[in-house]
Amino acid sequence: MWEYTDKLKDHFFNPRNVGEIDDPDGVGEVGSLACGDALKLTLKLDENGRIKDAKFKTFGCASAIATSSVLTEMIKGLTLDEADKVTNKDIADYLGGLPEQKMHCSVMGREALEAAIENYRTGGKKKHELEGRVVCNCFGVTESEIARVIRENNLTTVEQVTNYCKAGGGCGGCAGEIEKIIEKIHGDKVKEVPALVPRWAGKLTNIAKIQLIQQTINEQIRPVLRPHGGNIELIDVEGNKVIVAFRGMCAQCRLAEFTMKDVVEAKLREFVSEELFVEEDKESAQQPHNHRE
C-alpha cells in the first residue's frame, strides 16, 4: 500500500475542477492509455491575461488524479509567465509530498501545463510535441526532458530518473544514456558510479576472454533484452569474433540487427575488449514463438 498524504487522498476522492472548458484558450494533452496515465488540461484566461479557470481530465492512479486536481487549484489567478515557472516539485510539495515512485505524476502535471501555455501562445495551433532527441523509446522521453527533471529535482541515479519521468522504466536499454546525462549535468559531483565488470588489464587468455564475454552477456546484455521477452545465447568465440544467437522475441524482432550492434557489440567492447565484433548464428533460431502484442 502506498503512503499517501491526507491532502492527496482528499484530492483523489474529491477532485476539484474536473471536466473540460467549452471554449478554452489553451489545451494541454500529455500521456497515453498505453503508458498508464494521461492528462488533458484546459485553460481559460481573463481580460488581464490571468488564468481564470482550469479544468482537467485524467486517466491514471490516485496520485495522477490528485496531482491534476491540485495543479488546477495552484494555477488559478496566475499569469501565464507565473504559471510557466511552476515546477513538478512545487506540485509535489503542495500535496505534502509524493511516494518516490509516483513523482512522475507531478512531472506529467507540469508537462500538461506547459503544453497548454504553449498551445495558447501559438494561437491554439501547436499541439504538444516532443522536442529534441528521444532517449527512452518505451515511454517517449527526450533528452531535454530527462535533463530537466534531473536539474529541477537534483537527481543522481537512473532509478530516480525513472521514478520522475518514466525514462528507463520499460526495457531499460537507455539506462547507460541516462547515466551519461546525469554525469554531464552534475559534472564531477557524481563520479562514483562503479562499473560492474572491470575491463581486463593486460593480455586476455582465451579462457578468460570467453568467461568475461559470458559474464558480460549475463550481467549486462541479458537484462536489457529480458523485458522485451527476448534472450541471447553465446554460441562460440573465434578470435575476436563472438557468435551469438537471439532467442525468444529477439529471434523475430525487426530491430534485432540494431540491437546486435548497439547493445550486444557495444557492451562487449565496453566490458571485454575494443577489438570484439559480433555475428549472429542464424541457423540456431529454434525457440518457440513467444508472442506478445
Binding site: 483523489f12 496515465d37 486517466f59 491514471g60 492512479c61 490516485a62 495522477a64
Partner: peptide
C-alpha cells in the same frame, strides 16, 4: 477500459 486499477482499488478500499 479507460481507467486505472490502483484508482479503482482505492475507491473500493474506501
Amino acid at each position: 477500459e479507460y481507467i486505472e486499477g490502483e484508482a479503482i482499488l482505492l475507491m473500493l478500499d474506501k
